[in-house]
Amino acid sequence: MNILAASGIIAMTILVYRLSLYIHRKAESPFTLPILSSTVILIIFLAVFDIPYEQYMIGGEWINQLLGPAVVALAYPLYIHRKVMVKLAVPLFTGTLAGAFIGVVSGVSMAKWTGFGTEILYAISAKSVTTPVAVVITESLGGITSLAAVMVMIAGIGGAVMHKYVFKVFGITSHLGRGMGMGAASHAIGTAEVMKDSQLEGSISTVAMVASAIIVSLITPLIVSWFV
């Protein structure tokens, strides 16, 4: 029974994803990004049929299990573009460091000024890095981890939706600039997004994402201590 339910859920998720790809092809806009529209369609579907998240995860867990190897797979484009990566190491590192710093400081300070409590400040501090890292950082500070995971999602999908406007407004046209901006601000969801347009940008984004995860986990406890 469970296997049947799981297969049904997996098939449905694939179907919704394909539908989202189709919609995005027909009406290309940041608001039809497959990751956004798939999520919205599935949430509506589950709400209409009154299916709780735990029940969806009977099948969803199988897809989730593949997220691990999918992140491992990012090594492949990275290796293909290894020569460029080595050449760009210095700007990659400095840019990501600056972004990581701005990300933690701006998130925590704005939350503080608008009157949120310490637990919320902790949860928002690591929102620019990939979920598992953000959860570990938030946990070690004593914040609410599930809230941290939601913040990471918003930063990821928000960045994927907004990146074309941001790059246009700030005149960021190079592969290096775009890849770094995406990886530093929107972690793996952003990386997945630019990877579709350019493997080089996606690889740069991967490096920025990993560097950012390491840097943020090192600097966050210090920065947060300035505000609490």
Partner: peptide, 14 residues
């Protein structure tokens, strides 16, 4: 905050 990070890291890279 996400826009700020994207702009800063992106501009430095660019």
């Amino acid at each position: 905050s996400t826009v700020l990070v994207m702009a800063v890291s992106g501009l430095i890279g660019h």
